[in-house]
Design a protein around this nucleic acid. Structure first.
Length: 479
RNA sequence: GGCCCCAUCGUCUAUCGGUUAGGACGGCACCCUUUCACGGUGCAGAGACGGGUUCGAUUCCCGUUGGGGCUACCA
């Protein structure tokens, strides 16, 4: 049984790089019928917060990456971590170190000053047993260090192939602090063994932790998992994605009107390819197409333009009712209308959303463009009126003509509206566009909108007439 | 500094020794058209460099260069 885990530390929001790691774990588990677990690594109390934990849950839920089993909080396992450290001490794989943090810092600075690589010199490992016993009995504060054995540590990484580290380059790492709390590498291995994790899939910044962890697995007698290290997600400047690149939290994209499926699709393609030309996929299709072979070793740049395009593609594919429900919430948030009102007229709402989604890339685009279809009056865009009502006299004539034609038109539908307006344009000896454009501005206040007949239907007769009247009394159209 | 990872259009990528190096985003042009979009067509655009191996290298190996990561009593 495949068991993978996503193990973020709750020190901020869920970052897109972390989201991608979670996604790959999720895809891996779902593809193989395994379990996707979530572990919150909160052992650093100073930096961890409940708000951050909540933000991680929210982000994963929004993305649709549901985890299996209960969330594991690493902080709840400190007793086991300490027990494991004690066991290592017992078996001789680790030793007590009485060097203080200040001494260590001093030696490190000294080595650096001499351009030398600092490595712990194991002086405490050479202490006489009696000495160690008496210092311990005296209650002298000390850490527990893992004694890195001789040799080379190698593993076959799922994305990178064989990677090996000479053990001599690994320092004897502290696994338990002098206050008895565990250090990261110990906690991770202890927990992964306890959680029976079979595949550790994480970011490439953990590559250099891996040999240390493998050594700890062996010393602890745990079954070694397979490892995969995903390359970093970079900003457009080629540097690791961070706050200064703008939006990096998945929540930011939610608020920008990105659909979760589009976000997952986009993230999956950063470092994974199903082969061939496939790009736009639903979560189910991604699971179906997912395989280790498609995982790339190269870091990739987060290109928001492509994300937006991807979102536009998903906007067209999502079932209309589902999109309408999301848009309704966003329209209420924008203050144009209410969910209750929109639900009361589902067909009208569906038509509105369907007409706007084709010219939108985000939910926010739809909301922005929906404004003219709510409320009684519209704000006339200066540029639009200047351009489309340039010839005031002609515009007045055409708008008045349209008002007259529409006022008594029966029935109020596409079959009647279109011929009526085309005949009107012809009667005035102008092309259809010469009539439609000024009318579009009169009805919506802006120069871009769905087709003019659809606009009329969306607004209804009364509001259409009222807006033409409002346009007629606009300063620019004054006689 | 030491150790490790990486290297195809500006960006995301296909290619599993032999291709006019393909697709997508973005850009540009044109078509469609009542506007804006959508859609369609076309154009520009890539194997970092140097050595090998091979009949033949983008592909395999080595080096150089350039990016990135780690180097804590952080995670």
């Amino acid at each position: 049984m495949v068991r993978v885990r996503f193990a973020p530390s709750p020190t901020g929001y869920l970052h897109v790089g972390g989201a991608r790691t979670a996604l790959f774990n999720w895809l891996y588990a779902r593809k193989l019928g395994g379990q996707f677990l979530l572990r919150i690594e909160d052992t650093d109390k100073a930096r961890s917060s409940d708000d951050s934990t909540r933000a991680i849950f929210d982000g994963l839920i929004w993305l649709g990456l549901q985890w299996d089993e209960d969330v594991v909080f690493q902080g709840a396992n400190v007793q086991r971590h300490a027990r494991d450290a004690a066991a290592l001490l017992e078996s001789g794989a680790a030793y007590r170190c009485f060097c203080t943090a200040a001494e260590l810092d001093g030696r490190r600075a000294e080595a650096e000053a001499k351009q030398e690589t600092f490595r712990y010199d194991r002086r405490c490992d050479r202490l006489e047993a009696a000495d160690v016993a008496s210092r311990t009995a005296a209650g002298l504060p000390h850490t527990i260090r893992f004694r890195v054995p001789e040799g080379t540590t190698t593993w076959n990484d799922i994305v990178h192939g064989d990677i090996s580290f000479p053990n001599k380059d690994l320092d004897d790492l502290v696994i338990l602090r002098s206050d008895g709390t565990p250090i990261y590498n110990l906690a991770v291995v202890s927990d992964d063994i306890a959680m029976r994790i079979t595949h550790v899939l994480r970011g490439e910044d953990h590559i250099s932790n891996t040999p240390k962890q493998i050594l700890l697995y062996r010393a602890l007698g745990g079954a070694l998992p397979r490892f995969a290290h995903f390359p970093n997600v970079l900003g457009t400047d080629g540097k690791k994605l961070s706050k200064r690149h703008g939006a990096t939290a998945v929540g930011d994209y939610e608020h920008l009107g990105i659909l979760p499926d589009a976000m997952c699709n986009f993230l999956a393609l950063l470092g994974w390819s199903p082969g061939g030309d496939r790009e736009v996929m639903s979560p189910a299709e991604m699971i179906e197409a997912f395989s280790e072979d498609g995982l790339l070793a190269k870091a990739s740049v987060f290109d928001i333009k492509k994300l937006e395009w991807m979102n536009g593609q998903h906007l067209q594919r999502i079932p209309l009712e589902a999109l309408a429900a999301r848009v309704a919430v966003a329209i209420e948030a924008a203050g144009f209308s209410s969910v209750t009102d929109l639900n009361a007229r589902p067909e009208w709402t569906a038509l509105l959303v369907d007409l706007l989604r084709i010219r939108s890339r985000t939910v926010d685009d739809i909301v922005r463009q929906s404004q003219p279809y709510f409320g009684t009056s519209v704000a006339y865009d200066e540029q639009a009126t200047a351009k489309q009502w340039k010839d005031a006299a002609l515009s007045r004539t055409l708008l008045a003509g349209a008002r007259a034609a529409l006022a008594t038109l029966e029935p109020w539908d596409a079959t009647a509206v279109e011929p009526a307006l085309r005949i009107l344009a012809e009667a005035h000896g102008v092309g259809a566009g010469k009539l439609f454009q000024p009318l579009r501005v009169a009805l919506t206040g802006v120069a871009e909108s769905p087709g003019i007949f659809d606009v009329l239907l969306l607004l209804g007769r009364d509001r259409s007439i009222a807006r033409i009247d409002a346009a007629l009394s606009h300063p620019r159209l004054a006689p």
